[in-house]
């Protein structure tokens, strides 16, 4: 596994995503969701909203890194707020 060059932060990052996927799968089995129409212009399930949140978070970070020199945690906070609102009202 040496060639994969693992580091602690990336390992934690992937572990978190893996955990979220497992949680969503279990939630779906226990507590299935129906697609609903919220603020977004398309009907989404919980998994869809999670994916949209992740993608949006990635682009918020990219935009932040590209256009500002400030600390990255600002982008992370914006992403978290965005993700929460997407999951709740999206």
């Amino acid at each position: 596994m040496g060639w994969m060059a693992w580091t602690l932060p990336t390992a934690l990052f992937f572990a978190a995503i893996g955990l979220a996927l497992v949680t969503l799968t279990v939630l779906e089995l226990v507590w299935p969701t129906a697609a609903r129409r919220g603020l977004l212009p398309l009907s989404t399930t919980r998994g869809d909203r999670f994916f949209i949140s992740l993608l949006a978070a990635a682009f918020v970070h990219v935009g932040f890194l590209g256009f500002s020199d400030g600390p990255v945690w600002i982008a992370s906070i914006i992403s978290c707020l965005l993700a929460i609102s997407l999951m709740r009202w999206g």
């Binding site: 799968t25 779906e28 089995l29 998994g47 869809d48």
Partner: peptide, 9 residues
Amino acid sequence: FVGDRHLFF
């Protein structure tokens, strides 16, 4: 099945 559409994507 659980996650079918996401898997397909």
